[in-house]
Design a protein around this nucleic acid. Structure first.
Lengths: 372, 372
DNA sequence: GCAGCCGTGGCAATCGGTTGCCATACGTTG
DNA sequence: CAACGTATGGCAACCGATTGCCACGGCTGC
């Protein structure tokens, strides 16, 4: 009863004090009724709950956060929200967070390490933990962030920070296997950004798989991991043809297919192309892209779940990264090796002229980088 | 000077009290030095700033929010983060928010009005305002939300809530014009969800443009605004052919093109197809899609900017919605009307069988609804 | 019958900033 | 020199919830 505060000025949200007055107990009891079930007599608790319902009381997250530090928010930091690789990661993270009563704070760092540091600095005081996806920051900057708050890193490996990654090794192995089964004895890998941890991983995996499966492999690049990058790669490939290509990622593969099409080279008749990620759009490009499906949504979910576990006090799982499985999605961009001399191409006088209208330059989306 | 508090236990973030001690002033002065420039003597302010830098002080947003209500956060509520229409909207919103020092809170409502209400209820106490994009809630629920916090609605019109929308009328007019110029005298509109405000708007615009430009129009549907929906629409279209199709959105158009391709109908030789939105992927589907480019990013930016203006006290701009301009992007899916009898198609025994391997079912992404 | 324990609820300090009000010191003006 | 205005900084009361500690009443056990 001891509440001397004036009644809430109509318009602002009800507080525990209003509920306390309404139910005839002290504010502290109201607080406990919600946050510490069992600590309050059940009939009292029921009365309080009823009063709260009547008033439409909702606990104010800011007020709760102040003494406890529990903001019920986590941040997902990524280099570019509009990169399709992130779509499912975001969704997975969002689902996992919401399911646990947490709210997801999105920070787009626009591919800049500086902006990323700034975004983190701004987010840190408001969140309980961070998921860093394809961070553009240096290792030491990531470790620094991990000192301030629990952190989980996606698609990059640290020994002392928990991380979840795609099983690129198995993915590339499956891709090479698939091409091998189709009769291809020589494969070209189109590399992504040099600075990308994932690219190194993927190339190594391709090489190892090639060794083991007795398929020759070579590497072209690096290229920007975008449709534009794939277009650029076309020239190089035409100068040194190959019947099978594995690209660093889908965007690169899609760009390459467009480039080849313009040059009159048919996919998959003349060249088989395999992508990586299975991003949105890889099924409706033409031909539909055979690709290694990265566990995008699972990556988001797993990262958030590990983070939440840390927040609950479970010691972080460092040392070995959590590796999530991939699967090969076979579509229309791969086919048995053609009997035609591969050298025969590149001679074509170009693609059949496009239909009417301006040919689609598509430059609008040609430059979306992929995560490293 | 009057600070009796014990020094901060190393490990937690520095507070104004630490800065106050360090710079030899009262905490209130520190506070004012940051939040009220001019109120504090400039040399004092400088001294305080230096101390703050030295300590790495950052104002705690929760603590600030408690007395003031200023959380520096706004929520962007959307029906499905993985819908490509949102990519640029999100990015535009993110940029505008960040530029103003605000943080964006993303809420995905999974296409459910109930989840949307829940998400809003959870977000409201934490944010200063909301942007509702393609809300699935009833008008009254939206108005209810707008009573609790400043709200801006995207792609839906209210007379009493500020909103920003795409200029569908002009967009559809441009599409019909374009087809008319190519010689098409009859156009089929593939409708989106009936409940969609945008669909009603787009269909009406097509009809009006048709009337004015003397092109016959008819409407097929409704279909789900997804690739799957477009596939479904194919059957209907084959039964009642037309040389030109305008789809509710790109996903529907892309699905249709895939369906037509499988049925052996060539785009654009036999049918011209125009989409709407210019989403990610509409340039690399085959043929590259001619489409009305919605001002996606501008929509996000404008919505946030209007919201921020409201937060600064500018009276909300209600009454007439803010209409953002579109532009027609001509690519490869439209061509002059073919001289072949349109009735000739539908006879084909189906598409040439796809190349090797399983034909891409692509069911993974066939069901992404678009905003209504 | 009294000490001691348990269940329950209240008091009050606290989290970190914000801000209305007041005190002081200085400069100005008549 | 007195009266006054202004610039500046401090005091203390908030914002709303949490939580350690204590008080009170009822119960048990010896």
């Amino acid at each position: 009863m001891g509440d001397q505060r004036r009644p809430r000025p109509a318009g602002s949200a009800p507080t525990i004090y209003d509920v306390a007055r309404e139910s005839g107990v002290a504010a502290s009891t109201v607080s406990r009724a919600f946050s510490r079930p069992g600590r309050v007599n059940s009939v009292t608790a029921e009365r309080i709950r009823a009063a709260a319902d009547r008033l439409g009381y909702r606990t104010n997250p800011m007020a709760r956060a102040l003494p406890t530090g529990r903001t019920a928010m986590i941040a997902l930091v990524l280099s570019d929200v509009t990169n399709p690789v992130y779509f499912e990661i975001i969704r997975g993270a969002e689902r996992a967070a919401t399911a646990a009563g947490y709210t997801l704070l999105l920070a787009d760092t626009q591919e800049s390490g500086r902006l990323e540091r700034e975004a983190i600095e701004r987010a840190v005081p408001a969140v309980e933990g961070l998921v860093l996806s394809s961070s553009r920051m240096s290792d030491s900057a990531v470790r620094m962030a991990a000192k301030q708050r629990p952190v989980v890193v996606v698609n990059r490996v640290f020994s002392d920070v928990p991380c979840v990654v795609t099983d690129s090794a198995r993915g590339m192995r499956r891709a090479v296997e698939h091409l091998g089964e189709l009769g291809h004895r020589s494969i070209t890998y189109l590399a992504g950004p040099e600075a990308s941890w994932a690219d190194g991983m993927r190339w190594r995996s391709v090489r190892e798989a090639g060794l083991e499966l007795e398929v020759r492999v070579r590497r072209l690049g690096p290229y920007r991991p975008t449709v534009g990058g794939g277009l650029a790669a076309t020239t190089d490939l035409l100068q040194a043809p190959s019947t099978a290509v594995v690209a660093y990622n889908d965007l690169l593969a899609i760009g390459l297919m467009r480039g080849l099409d313009r040059a009159g080279v048919r996919v998959p008749r003349d060249v088989s192309v395999v992508g990586f990620d299975n991003v949105f759009g890889s099924d409706f490009c033409t031909p539909a892209l055979t690709t290694v499906a990265a566990p995008l949504r699972a990556l988001g979910t797993a990262a958030v779940e590990q983070l939440l576990a840390q927040l609950r006090g479970v010691p972080p799982r460092t040392g070995k990264p959590t590796v999530l499985p991939v699967r090969l999605v076979v579509r229309d961009s791969t086919a048995p090796r053609s009997r035609r001399k591969t050298l025969a191409w590149g001679t074509g006088s170009g693609a059949a002229p496009g239909p009417a209208g301006a040919s689609g330059t598509g430059s609008e989306v040609a430059d979306r980088p992929a995560p490293g």
